[in-house]
Design a protein around this nucleic acid. Structure first.
Lengths: 102, 102
DNA sequence: TGCATACATCAAATATTTCTGATATGATAA
DNA sequence: TTATCATATCAGAAATATTTGATGTATGCA
């Protein structure tokens, strides 16, 4: 099911942790920076701008986060929006509690 | 203070996660396998035996766990016992909750 | 249609982590 | 003391992860 080692690894990269923080804080806004209509989620190009990262690097990290289940992708035309997956984070925390008897 | 990225990294290695599970489940026993008296904690050689790992490999991983604050060392003669640090795990979980607004 | 934009993917380079065997340190016991 | 045992540390090898630039794919617009 949920693999706490895999999620730990996804969170263990500083750039990825920062991206997760950004997603959590900005994923719901009135007006998106890219699409001309209201939407939720943060797109690739916003992450590039925020951290000064090149496009392929952002893509790589978003794939890692998505494969760990920490992020959900929402394509929107030629853009792609990312939404943090609170369920996975909750399950991860819960699993740690069970595994380590907290 | 507490660095969630560092703790994630410590937990992101399969061998280390398994060692943490072992520590949590065995750190308090009536009779130690190594010392001739009752003690708490699991020693290096028990971890070696449990997972079939060589000594330097166990030492390496225990150092990583200790430096992340996940384990506390308790020297006992020529042995060294490791005790899981529940406080760090709790703080880690708490920090994730704050950071990701759970 | 052709062009521009956004993101994905690839291969190569670089960086980092993990593993191993050798050796060092420190404690115990004869 | 000397021998032995448990653990630490080191240097090199091996394995993995990350970064980059080039190229591919798909969408939207003129």
């Amino acid at each position: 099911m949920l693999d706490p080692v895999k999620i730990s690894k996804a969170l263990s990269e500083p750039a990825r942790y920062k991206i997760m923080l950004m997603l959590v804080n900005q994923y719901y806004r009135e007006v998106s920076q890219c699409c001309s209509f209201t939407t939720e989620g943060v797109c690739n190009c916003e992450i590039m701008a925020e951290f000064g990262m090149i496009q392929s690097r952002v893509s790589y990290h978003m794939k890692e986060l998505t494969e760990a289940g920490l992020v959900t992708e929402k394509p929107c035309g030629k853009w792609k929006y990312y939404i943090p997956n609170a369920e996975t984070l909750k399950n991860y925390i819960n699993q740690l509690g069970v595994d380590f008897k907290l």
